[in-house]
Computed example of a mutant assay.
Amino acid sequence: MLVQSSPLAGSQYYAVAELWPQIKPGDHLILIREPDNRHDRKAIRVEWNGRPLGYVPRAENRAVAQAIDAGEKLEARVSRLRDDPNPWRRVEFEVFLVL
């Protein structure tokens, strides 16, 4: 079941530019909860093949953080890639609750 669709936050600080040619729509992403993140206690890092790409946007991470904290099984995937100068528009991803 689709939980949310979001842009990737903070990608300009990670390896997205380097990895861009390899990332494809449909690629599996890993969501890693960071409860000790000093900027956001609900932080969720998004990784592709073991490489950090960015974060679930702070304004949209509460439900996903609660689901992870509750032990629910979530999956994420790249839904859209755009060659856009605005880093918030380059990578979109979807988060699914596995029933």
Rank of each mutant, 00 (worst) to 15 (best):
G26H: 09
V64R: 04
S6R: 01
W88Y: 12
E75N: 09
A17Q: 11
R45M: 15
S5G: 06
A70P: 03
V95A: 02
L74Q: 05
V16M: 05
S11F: 00
I32D: 12
L31G: 05
E75K: 13
P52V: 02
N37P: 07
H28R: 14
K24M: 11
V56C: 07
N61R: 04
P21N: 08
W88F: 13
L19K: 11
K24G: 01
R33E: 14
V46Q: 01
L74S: 02
V91S: 01
D69K: 11
I30W: 02
Y14L: 02
R51L: 11
A70H: 07
L97F: 02
P35L: 09
P7C: 06
V95I: 15
D69S: 12
R58V: 09
L74Y: 03
M1F: 01
E47F: 05
K42D: 14
R82H: 08
E72W: 04
I32E: 15
A59S: 13
F93V: 00
Q4E: 11
P35S: 07
P7V: 00
R51C: 10
G50I: 06
I44S: 06
P35I: 09
L31Y: 10
A17N: 14
L53T: 01
K73N: 08
I44R: 04
V98I: 13
A70V: 03
A63F: 02
R62F: 08
E60Y: 12
R45P: 00
S11I: 12
S11M: 05
R62L: 13
S79G: 09
A76E: 06
A65R: 08
I68L: 15
L81Y: 00
L8F: 02
A15S: 14
P85K: 10
R77F: 12
N61E: 03
G54D: 03
G10L: 01
A65S: 15
V16L: 15
P87S: 03
E92S: 11
I30D: 15
A76R: 06
L31E: 08
P25H: 07
G50M: 03
R90M: 08
I23S: 07
Y13M: 01
W48G: 03
G54C: 03
I23N: 04
E47Q: 14
K73S: 10
K42E: 11
L2W: 01
K24E: 14
W48C: 04
W88M: 14
D83L: 12
S79M: 05
